[in-house]
């Protein structure tokens, strides 16, 4: 490992300097270090996708075949026709869209209020929002279940949507606050001069100007809701409203997992994320490293 650092570092230093003797070698070393890392990063999910199109005979053989004999959609057919997978997907979509619509509005409001407001306690609120963001879900999941079931919303769409809104709210607010802060204040001051009320400035100026931020927030909000496991697991249990992660978890009943349909199901589960990312290609890296998805 130490050699790897040394070699990579030599190559890395080269990137900063004008072209000189030995550059070629350094670049080759860079590739040599990077390739296994990329292979490591890509392999598990690639293997999942490849395995999902194998035939049952091929999948359950050991040693496994590295390149499938052909593409067989049998596992997908079994997942889509033989299980409740599509129901779970619909549930996830309803919960995701519903909670995202609400959380975007609420976080835009709160984000603007915190970014531009001068009221006492503003700092305390923005800190609390951040603490709520890093607060471990496990610490409130089970007591939250007693609260939600106490008001009769356990296992229902409104219940889980409410929970997902709260789950997503801290980060979305943080994201919107950053966007509103990045807008030039002069525009709002000009709005004031032109006689806009504070509400008018928010609705007529700030929100339209922050539209790209709203779109990004909505996409990450949806993805977070789509991925969320623990709260959905506790609130929805084994009921009809199970979201996709909970539904997939319940696929594994017996000791020996049915890997074929499972790999088809997990492969299908990432497609919405990939499709959504097509819309915000340029903002993905920044959004993800900024913490937009809970990891």
């Amino acid at each position: 490992m130490a050699t790897a650092i040394a070699d990579a570092g030599t190559g890395r230093a080269r990137a900063r300097r004008p072209r000189r003797r030995g550059d070629r070698r350094r670049r080759i070393v860079g590739y040599a270090v990077l390739s296994p890392l990329i292979g490591f990063a890509v392999f598990p999910l690639l293997w999942m996708a490849v395995s999902s199109v194998k035939t049952p005979d091929e999948l359950y053989a050991f040693p496994p075949t590295w390149i499938p004999d052909g593409v067989d959609w049998g596992f997908y057919r079994r997942v889509l026709d033989g299980t409740q997978f599509t129901d779970f997907m619909v549930n996830s979509a309803i919960v995701g869209i519903g909670s995202t619509a609400i959380v975007v509005v609420m976080s835009a409001m709160a984000g603007f209020g915190l970014a531009r407001g001068g009221f006492p306690g503003r700092l305390f609120v923005s800190r609390s929002v951040l603490v709520a963001y890093v607060f471990p879900t496990i610490l409130y999941a089970v007591p939250l279940f007693t609260v939600i079931s106490g008001i009769g919303l356990a296992g229902t769409y409104p219940g889980i949507i409410l929970v997902h809104v709260a789950f997503n709210f801290p980060f979305c607010t943080w994201l919107m606050m950053q966007y509103f802060r990045s807008l030039p204040k002069e525009i709002e001051e000009a709005g004031r001069v032109d006689g806009l009320t504070h509400v008018g400035i928010f609705v007529r100026l700030a929100v339209p100007l922050a539209a790209p931020g709203l779109a990004t927030t909505a996409i990450f909000g949806f993805i977070n809701s789509w991925n969320e496991f623990l709260l959905s697991f506790v609130i929805l249990g084994g009921g009809e409203r199970r979201t996709l992660p909970v539904g997939i978890y319940n696929f594994v009943g017996s000791e020996v997992a049915d890997w074929g349909p499972l790999m088809a199901a997990t492969t299908l589960a990432v497609i919405p994320t990939l499709v959504l990312f097509l819309f915000i290609q340029r903002r993905i890296t920044g959004g993800l490293t900024g913490g937009a998805v809970k990891g």
Partner: peptide, 16 residues
């Protein structure tokens, strides 16, 4: 390409 799986459901990552 490398960071996209960061946004995948944990169940997908765990089961793969």
């Amino acid at each position: 390409g490398l960071i996209i799986p960061w946004a995948f459901p944990s169940i997908v990552l765990a089961y793969s």
